[in-house]
């Protein structure tokens, strides 16, 4: 059963009840409660493909809380609570969805040290995955969004999860936050791309969330193997440039960009080494999405 199967009344009931709404998001189980009514239609739109879960152990317990009475008229705010505590300052009330997404990022980044977490987008065809590690602003999410509208399956756009036991990539399909300018480019590239509302002046600028494809979510339990390492870099007006990268370079770029490379110590070293060995590594400079996607099609 997926979230779309719930009626609005059902969903509201779950969100406001003690049991909460329990969703499976990649390998994680989330329990969400909320007293912010405005989040419900957004969940119905952007979270509709996620499976409801009856797992008893939930990895993250989140509560989205609206303002107390005296705040309702004067600068209303929204606060995300993790296990009853607020990891960050409240946000303006209109930023409920970003608050939820950042709260989940915070939980994953801090608590999931049983996995190696690369700062990378990952897409796959069958078992073969492209890993796209990049710094913020290098167009990783945008390229990832374009690829998933070109026949690739979404594994992740932010946390590339690597299982230490065998180096497999675990899918964690989530909403993809896209910055304002890139939204138009994506809509031109893939008219079927489905965006949520735009949130203005968040701490990451104006952004809208791309709904993850239902098929990708349905295949969340199917791991993939790293086959290509692509280091994307978006540059306004740049000509397309796909260059091989030496394994040493690739190793450094993956390791220094991971969320918890140091925390995992020796096992992270082995995992990244193995990943680089099993991949063809390239850097990709691009400005136009169609050309970038076509170049990757030829390569793979």
């Amino acid at each position: 059963m997926i979230l779309a199967n719930l009626t609005t009344a059902d969903l509201t009931e779950r969100l406001t009840s003690r049991a909460g709404l329990a969703l499976g998001i990649g390998p994680f189980h989330l329990r969400l409660t909320s007293d912010v009514a405005a989040i419900t239609p957004l969940l119905q739109q952007l979270y509709r493909h996620y499976p409801l879960t009856d797992q008893v152990i939930r990895d993250f317990h989140l509560h989205l809380s609206g303002s107390a009475l005296h705040r309702r008229w004067l600068r209303p705010q929204v606060q995300l609570l993790v296990d009853g505590r607020a990891p960050f300052e409240p946000l303006p009330a209109a930023h409920h969805l970003p608050a939820l997404e950042w709260g989940m990022n915070w939980c994953i980044a801090l608590r999931c040290n049983h996995l190696l977490m690369l700062h990378a987008a990952v897409v796959a065809r069958g078992e073969h995955a492209i890993v796209l590690p990049a710094w913020p602003g290098h167009g990783k999410s945008t390229l990832c969004a374009a690829l998933i509208h070109s026949g690739w399956r979404l594994l992740s756009d932010e946390f590339g999860l690597v299982r230490p036991a065998d180096g497999a990539l675990l899918p964690l399909p989530r909403l993809i936050p896209i910055k304002n300018a890139a939204v138009t480019a994506l809509q031109t590239f893939a008219p079927s791309a489905e965006f949520g509302p735009t949130f203005y002046a968040t701490r990451k600028g104006d952004l809208a969330h791309l709904c993850p494809p239902g098929e990708s979510i349905a295949q969340s339990d199917q791991i993939a193997r790293p086959r290509w390492l692509i280091f994307p870099r978006w540059q306004a007006g740049a000509a397309l440039n796909l260059q091989p990268v030496s394994p040493t370079q690739a190793f450094l770029r993956v390791a220094t960009n991971a969320f918890n490379y140091e925390t995992l110590g020796g096992s992270a070293f082995t995992l990244v080494t193995e990943m680089v060995r099993s991949c063809n590594c390239y850097s990709l400079t691009y400005s136009a999405l169609p050309a970038a996607v076509a170049a990757l099609e030829t390569l793979t």
Partner: peptide
């Protein structure tokens, strides 16, 4: 699922 959390800690 418990072991994951304990190992992460």
């Amino acid at each position: 699922s418990v072991v994951n959390h304990l190992q992460a800690a």
